[in-house]
Simulated assay, not measured.
Amino acid sequence: MRKYESKDYWASLIKMSLSRFFILHVLHREPLHGYEIAKRVAGITCGCCAPTEGSLYPVLKEFEDNGLVNVEFQLVSGRERKVYTITDEGEQAYQVAAQAWCEVSAYILQAVNSKDL
C-alpha cells in the first residue's frame, strides 16, 4: 500500500500537529512538568494525541526557544524537574491556534459530510 492510501500516514500527520496544540492547551490551564503534560494530553484526547518522550521534549524546547514557555527547575523528592509555564506570547499563540483549529475542523466536517463526495 502506498503511504497516501494509509490511514496511519494521515493520522500521524494530524496527530503531530494536534499534539503541539494540546501541549499549549494544557499549559494554558496551568504550569506542568513534562510527564504531567504528556499524561494530561493523553487524558483529554483519549490517547489519540499523546506525545511520547521523544516527541514532547523537542517541542517544549522549540516553544522555549521561541518564547512560548518559560522553564523553572524545581526540586521534588530529591529530584530536579523542569516545570513549564506558558508566557504571554505562548498564550497569544494558543488563542490563535485554537481559533485556527476550530475553523479548519469545521471545514473538514463540512467537506466530509458534503453530498458532493
Rank of each mutant, 00 (worst) to 15 (best):
R2P: 13
D8C: 03
Y9F: 15
L13D: 02
K15H: 09
M16R: 15
S17H: 06
L18W: 00
S19L: 14
F21Q: 03
V26T: 08
L27W: 04
H28K: 15
R29M: 10
H33V: 04
G34K: 07
E36V: 08
K39P: 01
G43W: 00
C46F: 09
P51E: 06
P51T: 08
T52W: 00
T52P: 02
T52N: 08
E53T: 11
L56S: 08
Y57H: 11
Y57W: 11
P58F: 07
L60Y: 01
K61H: 10
N66A: 06
V71Q: 02
F73Y: 01
Q74H: 09
V76L: 13
V76H: 06
S77Q: 10
R79I: 06
R79Q: 14
R79G: 02
K82P: 03
T85P: 00
T87C: 09
D88T: 09
E89F: 06
E89N: 15
G90R: 02
E91K: 13
E91C: 10
Q92R: 15
Q92I: 12
A93I: 04
A93W: 00
Q95L: 15
A98K: 15
A98L: 14
A100C: 11
C102E: 14
C102I: 06
S105D: 10
S105I: 13
Y107C: 11
L109Q: 10
L109K: 07
Q110R: 10
Q110K: 12
N113W: 02
K115Q: 11
K115I: 10
D116P: 00
L117M: 07
